[in-house]
Simulated assay, not measured.
Amino acid sequence: MPELPEVETVRRTLNQLVIGKTVERVSVKLPRIIQYPEDIERFQLLLSGETIQSVERRGKFLRFMFDHYTLVSHLRMEGRYGVYRSGEPEERHTHVVFYFTDGTELRYKDVRQFGTMHLYPKDQDLQEAPLKKLGLEPLDEAFTFEAFRDRIGSRPTKIKPLLLNQEYIVGIGNIYVDESLFLAGIHPEREARSLSRHELAKLYEAVVRTLKEAVAAGGSTIKSYVNGQGEIGMFQHQFKMYGRKDEPCFHCGHKIEKMVIGGRGTHYCPKCQPLKRRRSKGALKR
């Protein structure tokens, strides 16, 4: 957390709040947040006088597009951004502050202190860590069924951890993998190479549908996620699988079970998502 829908929601709200603002100075109170460059003073100097042109996203990463530089930000578990007027009380765990020339401030708060920032010359960030090895964007026009099938269809890997691997497909995350697999009727322990073309098509449709619905709902708030305007997400009220252990499946009434796959808690319905492959040509209805 946050996953693609939450980061996309933050991106959209920040685009409403910070576009066109020029940095006067930057305050870094927790140096380890800044992963590159290692020289914090250089980081601050490079951003001085830069104007934010747009805020973009790559997987779970935010990309602040300045005149000459790109700031890559990963929120990790609990990182969050907020825009404030100068002089407003500063909350605890505020680690980086961007002071704008118009008297407003973009503050980065992170209770867990796991977030990261990298600053590169514009567009160089896509060829450098942490973005250079990222896989397909599931909400991009290039994310076709053929691209999805080619990337994962022949892998001798369980489908759940494969979908979580950011080098194949980015941003889905634990919540949305559970929801997508349920929607497609696929057991999370099935090997990707065991899936028929029809099953892969159902999974592809389920991933796209789940993520689009989650973005439309502003993401999911499980613990502390809020967008750039301090608003919580609402998709958690639409969960059909994630976090519902021992509750009845909305589709068949069977008790939802939970297991650990690849170190991640995994929710599934044994009846709707049988481990053994079965023939089915039904459309997505869940």
Results as ranks from 00 to 15, higher is better:
residue 220 S to A: 13
residue 216 A to C: 08
residue 244 R to P: 05
residue 48 S to P: 05
residue 22 T to C: 09
residue 186 I to M: 02
residue 46 L to W: 11
residue 58 R to I: 00
residue 59 G to H: 01
residue 12 R to F: 03
residue 89 P to Y: 07
residue 258 K to R: 15
residue 13 T to P: 02
residue 127 Q to G: 09
residue 52 I to G: 00
residue 38 E to H: 13
residue 168 Y to V: 02
residue 60 K to D: 01
residue 38 E to T: 14
residue 94 T to R: 03
residue 155 R to N: 10
residue 8 E to M: 01
residue 262 G to E: 11
residue 153 G to W: 04
residue 26 V to G: 02
residue 282 G to K: 15
residue 198 H to Y: 13
residue 143 F to L: 07
residue 232 I to H: 09
residue 124 Q to T: 07
residue 175 I to H: 06
residue 277 R to I: 15
residue 28 V to M: 08
residue 150 D to G: 07
residue 80 R to L: 13
residue 176 Y to N: 00
residue 238 Q to D: 13
residue 174 N to G: 04
residue 257 E to D: 12
residue 45 L to D: 15
residue 248 P to M: 07
residue 177 V to A: 05
residue 191 E to K: 12
residue 255 K to N: 12
residue 162 L to I: 06
residue 238 Q to I: 07
residue 128 E to P: 06
residue 279 R to Y: 11
residue 219 G to S: 09
residue 95 H to E: 05
residue 12 R to W: 06
residue 107 R to Q: 13
residue 83 V to M: 06
residue 283 A to W: 09
residue 168 Y to W: 11
residue 92 R to H: 11
residue 216 A to P: 07
residue 259 M to G: 08
residue 245 K to D: 14
residue 132 K to L: 00
residue 219 G to L: 04
residue 273 Q to M: 07
residue 61 F to C: 00
residue 162 L to W: 00
residue 95 H to C: 05
residue 67 D to L: 08
residue 214 A to F: 09
residue 13 T to R: 13
residue 149 R to S: 12
residue 267 H to M: 12
residue 284 L to E: 10
residue 186 I to N: 01
residue 39 D to T: 04
residue 162 L to C: 05
residue 126 L to F: 09
residue 211 L to C: 11
residue 43 F to M: 10
residue 189 E to S: 10
residue 20 G to W: 09
residue 93 H to N: 11
residue 182 F to V: 01
